[in-house]
Structure formats: structure tokens, C-alpha cells
Amino acid sequence: MTTNAPRPEVLRYTAFSAEPEGGNPAGVVLDATHLDAGDMLAIAADLGYSESAFLTALPDGLEGHEGRAYGVRYFSPKAEVPFCGHATVASAIALAERIGPGELVFSTQAGIVPVSVVQERGTVRATLTSVEPHLDRIEAADLDEALAALGWPDTDLDPAFPPRIAFAGARHLVLAAATRARLADLAYDFARLEALMHRLDLTTVQLVWRESADVFHVRDPFPVGGVVEDPATGAAAAAFGAYVRELGLVPEDAVLTLHQGEDLGRPGELTVTLRAGDPRVRVSGAGTRIG
């Protein structure tokens, strides 16, 4: 921060819940023009949320989005991350309260992310459209290390959901639990999982359990961000949408509901929309200001 620059206003919003006590809280700085990476990291660390977003207005905008296009950087308390879904939703809702609902465009390190914000019966909802996703296989030795760090025997995995690394702006290891009880019992080796995630360039581990054809429960350990668990993870939800579609686990046109944060006492709901012929994934949720 330059010596004479004013201290930026740091807003606090939760994403994927209409209640301040639910979803995933994020810090939002709507004008980060005078901040460098060190300033942003310090603010994120001071807040202690899993991620915070730092916006700068794009002076030339993007075609058709003049005045509603922004550059965005995302920081956890420990490091910068290329993309964060819940902080994107939080930022879009914060902007909508100031410039009105409608279409926004965020230029992130992962690529261009359009966001649409609407107000429905007093609740503000944002829908982000991911960058183009893809899946990678995980080596057997790396999978064994992940399970060892989690304390999960391989018999606790659902064989219908093969482990994969899924990307839709950031990389997430997708592992499916065979039972809800297995998902609920999360006590992992923080340092061991963190080391593996750094080596594989993972942002979170997306742990899932399928309740029904289109309803899932998810949890996301996030040790590389200095957080034991992320309460609601939009980037991982987008990656998971790509994962289930590519493996044929859901129809090409599908609307999925992901419940996250229940085991942390911060329940949230993420809506994942898949469209046939469009590889990108849409992730929607409500949000509100905290405090």
C-alpha cells in the first residue's frame, strides 16, 4: 500500500447462504487499486477467512460490459489462489448492492468468469460460469498417500466414483465416501495432506457423498490455505460438476444440489447447472453481508 493511500474498506459477505451464520464468509475489497500482493495477503490473513477477493475496475472494460468488468485476485490466509468461487459470489453480490443486479465479468488468473446477479423475493443470488474444465487421473501412490493422510481405508470409498483431479479454475482431488457417516467423521493429518496437495498443486480435496440422483453432501479440507476446512467451495463445486458429467454419472443436462457446511455448523447450498453442448459449469448461490 502506498504511503499516502487510504486504507481500503474491507467488506464481509457470506456466500451460498441467505443467512450471515451460514455458507462461507469471504472478505471483499471492491477497490484494491493501491494494494500490492503483500498488502492483500496481510488483509486476508488478518480476516482469517478461507479466501478474500480484491477487485480493480478494468478501465477499458470488456466488450459489452463497460463499467461492470473487474480484475480479481484471491488470497487465503497463507497464499494467493488462482480462482475462488465463494469469494466470486460474495464480490458479485457486494457489487450488485452498489451498482445493481445484472451481468458482471471477472478477469481472474484462471481466465474470464462471467457472473449474473439477480434478486428474487428479497434474496440476492449470483451465478458464476466457470472456465473450461478438465479431469486428470491421480497416480496410485498419490491416492494411497491422500487416503493415509485422511485416515480413510480404501474400502470407505464409493466404487461408483473413481478418484480424479478435477479442474474448473483450480485443481481439486475428488474422493467419494461410501457413507454419510464416513463423510461426517473428518479428522485428518493436516501437515501430511498439505504436503501432498502442494506437490500435486491442489487447492482443496473435494469429499462427496451421494444422497440421491441429484443431491450430494460435500466437504473440502483446505490445509494449503491455512484452513482446516472450507465451509462452502464454489470452485470445487464447478470442478465436481465437470467430474460427474465427464464420467457419465449424471445426465448432460442436469441441476445438482450440493449441501456443504452442515458438519461445521455453517450450512450452505450450492446449485450446479450442466448444459449439454457447453463444457462450462455454472455454480449458483445466495449471499448476504455479515454484520
Rank of each mutant, 00 (worst) to 15 (best):
G111S: 02
H65M: 05
F83K: 00
L157V: 12
V113W: 02
L207F: 12
D189H: 08
T127R: 09
G61Q: 11
I112H: 11
T123C: 13
V115H: 00
A126P: 03
V117D: 00
L186T: 15
E63Q: 15
D144A: 02
A69H: 04
Q206G: 14
L200D: 12
V115Y: 01
V117H: 00
T155I: 13
A87H: 01
R98A: 07
A187E: 05
D142T: 11
D189Q: 07
V117E: 01
L104S: 03
R68A: 11
Q109G: 06
R121M: 07
A177G: 13
A181L: 15
Q206A: 11
L196R: 00
A195R: 12
V131F: 08
D154T: 07
P163H: 10
A96P: 03
V115W: 01
V113F: 13
P101D: 07
H134C: 03
T179Q: 15
H134W: 15
A176P: 08
L202A: 13
T127A: 14
P162N: 04
S107T: 15
D136Y: 11
G64T: 00
A191H: 08
G67E: 09
A170S: 11
S91K: 05
P162A: 09
P153Y: 13
V124H: 03
G64Q: 09
H134T: 11
I93N: 03
L62C: 13
A181Q: 12
R180F: 10
A176W: 05
R192W: 14
F106H: 00
A94T: 05
R199F: 08
W152Y: 04
L175W: 09
A140S: 14
P153R: 11
L183F: 06
A79H: 09
V105K: 14
T179A: 08
F167A: 03
V117G: 00
L147Y: 08
L173S: 04
V89C: 13
A141N: 04
A92M: 04
P101K: 01
H198E: 11
A126D: 01
D158T: 09
T108I: 06
V118N: 04
T129V: 07
C84V: 15
